[in-house]
Design a binder for these strands. Sequence first.
DNA 1: CCATATAGCAAAGTTAGCTTTATCAACCCA
DNA 2: TGGGTTGATAAAGCTAACTTTGCTATATGG
Lengths: 153, 153
Amino acid sequence: MGAVGQDVGLGAVEETVRLGGDLRVAVGRIARRLRQAHRTGDLTFSEASVLARLDREGPTTPGVLAELERVRPQAMTSTVGALERRGLIARSADVEDGRRVVVSVTEQGRRVLTDMRQASTMRLARGLEQFTPAERARLEQAVPLLDRLAGLL
Amino acid sequence: MGAVGQDVGLGAVEETVRLGGDLRVAVGRIARRLRQAHRTGDLTFSEASVLARLDREGPTTPGVLAELERVRPQAMTSTVGALERRGLIARSADVEDGRRVVVSVTEQGRRVLTDMRQASTMRLARGLEQFTPAERARLEQAVPLLDRLAGLL
DNA sequence: CCATATAGCAAAGTTAGCTTTATCAACCCA
DNA sequence: TGGGTTGATAAAGCTAACTTTGCTATATGG
């Protein structure tokens, strides 16, 4: 263990820690800036996350969504409630189990996901336009990794 | 302008918007998970951002920091105050202008930046260990882009 | 030398996004 | 059929991270 024979800079562990720190700062800055510029009518982070997940993985119950998003069911109740109030998702009763509720994306919800009217998305897109296509491609390759990383936290 | 002759999927604008949306969800998820797992004694996002910036760019005044972080000077007062209370930065009077205060990183602050005792950094590092070196390299290449992006927002 | 601008700070208020505590209805099993 | 479990919800409270409002001290220009 440890650097033997030659000094090639940092060890693998130290580099990973450093990457973690850098990533934390970068992600934190973007998140803070976006939250700051949040306009009423725009989706919050939690809402956007749930809506995107529902669109990708199909209808589920609030309880399952809570597990996937790593929050208490009570927190999901309020997120789901907010999305429903805006007509982006629909709650329906489960016929097999009267306790259960099934949540699914509405047409309007699907439209919002590809919408440029979302202030945050527009803001990000305008920033991304300043990048070269190669740089955007690099970011695009990083997105699935970031998603996976979020799942591991 | 527009797609002429052949259909190669989405146009450049639509793709940028989609990348923006995906990035927003991914960044939001990581930020929410990290904030959730925040332990007392750990740096907050704003504190980490300011401390990292001070380390990279050297001593400055709270006012300049506020501009760089895109917040009101009053918000920076509290962030700087929190960092000072924990001994990570030092406030000193400017000899040339009695109104000004100069903020600089202390030795302890510099130590914290490369510290694995930070709960968030450890959490991220443990997640990153599940990635292949190639994947970590891809993330590493994305970090400066994310930083630049944050500056454009 | 005085009016105005600038830098920093303090306090109170706001919002997102959680949590814990508490209810209630529906299911399941002995 | 009665008792415990489970799913969803409601209400209240907390923290991070801002904001706006208002103050004080120092600097500066006519």
